[in-house]
Amino acid sequence: MDHVDIIEDVIKVEKLVDLVTSPSYGAITTFIGTTRDNFDGKNVTRLEYEAYIPMARKKMLEICGMVREKWKVGNIAIVHRIGVVPVKEASIIIAISSAHRRESLESVHFAIDTLKATVPIWKKEIYEDGSNSWKENTEWKHSKING
């Protein structure tokens, strides 16, 4: 099963783990990306995300396809949150199950790196002093898409 979603609510990790759990798979790896309270010495109060939703979903499904070409995995769940994401809360959760641990560990690492390089989602950091900044992923800077 490939489950991808973009939501405006809190992402519940238990829900994603439930989705990928299966009697025939003995390993589940999760990655949770959360909002940090600092960047470059500045205090971050929150992040604001936006997405080109239909294209982002399409690119997330393509990542599921790439994962399946590279590893024998069971179920894949990738959920990204948009809108305001306060400090400590999750903006992205990825959960992948597989029969044994290696495939799920490696494929989750690949999935988050590829998401950062290819999926049209943007974040703006809002600082304590009221200023803000649109961010750029280094994975995107170095990706082929960006020439």
Partner: peptide
């Protein structure tokens, strides 16, 4: 068409 500035998801 969409205008895509540097992406920063994740």
């Amino acid at each position: 068409l969409a205008v895509i500035p540097p992406i920063s998801g994740g």
